[in-house]
Write a protein that binds this DNA or RNA. Structure first.
Lengths: 88, 88
DNA sequence: GGAGTTTACGAATGTCGTAACTATC
DNA sequence: GATAGTTACGACATTCGTAAACTCC
């Protein structure tokens, strides 16, 4: 699992759109689809219920969303702290 | 950044040995070296002071160690919770 | 000289983007 | 029929392991 995939998942969850998430990440739509698929495969559970015209979070997706936000935020703070330690 | 690299870093930090960390991850020593190098490059700071006979955490490494532990733990719990949600 | 870390290099794996397909409205 | 998500596929990048080199004790 990598942080980029989590960021990708967060953007899809917040936009409820693969297209807009792709735009926000400066990636193509297929790349977003594959990252979400990989994430779901790794978790062994679906995160979204999607048809071509509707994207919706599953209960597992809602649970994972909050955790993903925390993890991404924590990792960004960890990087900042490490950098700050190396300077100061 | 991916969780595997963090796990790798944690194992090196706890064993103060690239060789033992590699063993614990069922990977080769060079793979561990490269993951740590990548991580350091990404952070823009050294995490270990190492000679061939001694491995030691830098201040940035110590700071990052605590954060890395949290992130890895949180991600494991996030996976568990998502799986549980999908079942129950 | 031996234990342990780092390069070198070829192979395998993964990820991306373009293009084509499918499905919903 | 237009919009949005998914496959197919070829290309690029990353990561791995074996083998060789380097370094400190």
């Amino acid at each position: 699992m990598n942080i980029d995939s989590l960021q990708c998942f967060i953007l899809v969850a917040e936009n409820l759109s693969f297209a807009r998430a792709a735009e926000a990440m400066y990636k193509s739509q297929p790349a977003v689809t594959k990252q979400i698929n990989s994430l779901e495969a790794e978790l062994g559970t679906a995160l979204f219920i999607r048809s071509t015209r509707h994207v919706e979070l599953t209960p597992a997706g809602m649970s994972f969303y909050k955790d993903a936000k925390d993890i991404v935020l924590n990792s960004q703070m960890a990087i900042d702290r490490a950098k700050r330690q190396s300077i100061g």
